[in-house]
């Protein structure tokens, strides 16, 4: 894949939220645009295009990464999870339930990326401290000032996951 020149379309297989997809795009296309515009998965949002705000984060093989500066070729053959893949209204992820329980959001544009960072945190630290939650979310920007509610929600979800 790496050898593809910019602009020339390539066919790439990626696994997104448990489903195999074959997408056709230039190999250097940011993964974000493939997810949003080819697969219709709109949870990951564009914020800056340089990986500085976290709004576009997805899990790639369990790691939270910025999909806006991850080229498609780097995601080939990998397992990608977007916020849609964490859960939905019928089967919510504990983090999603906790965000609602804590009413942790205003505009909500940053939330899918924050969910991804938090999910990656809980996978490696099931019982994080508040300071660990804050540190894990430090590369996710929120402008509305919902930070403290979001932190409470992540701690709540950690409790819930451990009880269940």
């Amino acid at each position: 894949m790496k050898s593809q020149s910019a602009g020339a379309a390539a066919t790439v297989r990626i696994q997104v939220n448990g489903t195999e997809h074959e997408v056709s795009a230039a190999a250097d296309t940011p993964l974000l645009y493939v997810l949003r515009n080819q697969l219709g998965l709109k949870a990951a949002h564009f914020g800056c295009g340089t990986g500085q705000c976290g709004a576009c984060r997805v899990l790639i093989d369990g790691r939270a990464v910025a999909s806006c500066d991850t080229p498609l070729w780097a995601a080939a053959g990998k397992h990608i999870t977007t916020a849609e893949g964490l859960g939905d209204a019928a089967h919510p992820h504990p983090l999603q339930s906790a965000l609602i329980a804590e009413q942790a959001g205003q505009c909500g544009y940053c939330l899918p990326g924050i969910l991804i960072s938090a999910a990656a945190l809980l996978a490696r630290r099931p019982r994080p401290t508040e300071a660990e939650v804050r540190a894990a979310l430090d590369d996710n920007l929120c402008r509305c000032g919902s930070h403290n509610r979001i932190v409470r929600a992540v701690l709540r979800a950690a409790q819930a996951e451990n009880i269940s």
């Binding site: 515009n37 219709g40 709109k42 949870a43 949002h45 919510p92 965000l99 009413q103 959001g105």
Partner: peptide, 28 residues
């Protein structure tokens, strides 16, 4: 303190923002 009506869409990643509009034949 009723819960916000818009929050479920926002945490489940349901398209809601103008950024998410995807109309037939749309150009960028």
């Amino acid at each position: 303190p009723l819960p916000r009506l818009d929050l479920p869409h926002k945490v489940y990643g349901v398209p809601r923002f103008v950024h998410d509009l995807d109309l037939p034949g749309m150009l960028h």
